[in-house]
């Protein structure tokens, strides 16, 4: 298996690595990496913020064939804390080398499964104590999950085939709620209007945002209007 790197594409490099660097700044990580596979088109993507030296070394040594953070995430539903992989001999093989490039062992990989067999994973790492890592992870994981799937959806939809398959499939409830948001109603207003709980409105909004590949509700409303799913009020 040969890694196809988006680094060869200048536009994508700036756009996506810039985005990953933004994730690191926001959540206080040192580095982030995304790897994605699309069996439908037979393509692979890899975007990383690591130093050029480590990237070259990783590619030269073909460490992606060993790297348990990639292999493990493919079989997991939950994010894989690298702590869980430390007994793996391949983990030692990769991270003993990584240490020489200033990369620590605290990190995690978020797996993202797509509906058509596409698969992505976002890895983040930070050089710190285990206690500090545990705290950071607890604080940011819920926020990091949708960001990981956002990156994945963006990159997958940079391919024409996937873009066609992935037209936003919103439910009537999700559209209805976005329409009320566009009309200026608050989440609680909408809950009262629809006689459902505030939390249930939140669930539909989360789902609507992800389907529209938007991180904020405002962005989702903009896209929904652009796609004529809802009317501008």
């Amino acid at each position: 298996m040969k890694l196809h790197s988006l680094h060869d594409v200048p536009h994508s490099e700036e756009r996506f690595t810039g985005y990953l660097k933004g994730i690191c700044d926001t959540f206080e990580f040192d580095d982030a990496a995304y790897a994605g596979v699309n069996p439908a088109s037979g393509t692979m993507h890899a975007i990383v913020t690591y130093d050029k030296d480590w990237q070259d070394h990783y590619q030269d040594q073909e460490l992606h064939n060993l790297d348990p953070t990639l292999q493990a995430a493919m079989r997991s539903v939950a994010p894989v804390d690298w702590m869980r992989l430390r007994h793996d001999s391949n983990f030692r093989a990769v991270f003993d080398q990584a240490r020489d490039f200033g990369i620590g062992e605290c990190g995690l990989t978020i797996p993202i499964r797509g509906p058509y067999g596409e698969f992505g994973m976002l890895s983040v790492t930070r050089k710190c104590s285990e206690a500090e890592w545990a705290k950071l992870k607890r604080n940011v994981l819920a926020e990091l999950q949708p960001v990981a799937s956002h990156v994945h959806d963006h990159i997958m939809q940079s391919e024409p085939l996937t873009r066609i398959l992935h037209h936003p499939n919103l439910s009537l409830r999700e559209i209805e709620i976005l329409q009320w948001i566009a009309a200026g109603k608050s989440q609680q207003d909408i809950a009262d209007i629809l006689s459902i709980s505030n939390r249930t409105v939140e669930v539909h909004l989360r789902s609507a945002r992800e389907k529209l590949v938007a991180l904020t509700t405002a962005q989702a409303v903009g896209r929904a209007i652009g796609l004529s799913l809802i009317y501008p009020s």
């Binding site: 539903v77 978020i110 993202i112 819920a142 999950q145 949708p146 990981a148 799937s149 499939n169 919103l170 439910s171 009537l172 409830r173 669930v203 539909h204 989360r206 789902s207 945002r209 992800e210 389907k211």
Partner: peptide, 11 residues
Amino acid sequence: GEPPVRSANIW
């Protein structure tokens, strides 16, 4: 027949 909820935050 409606599409299901889809979110990385929802299992």
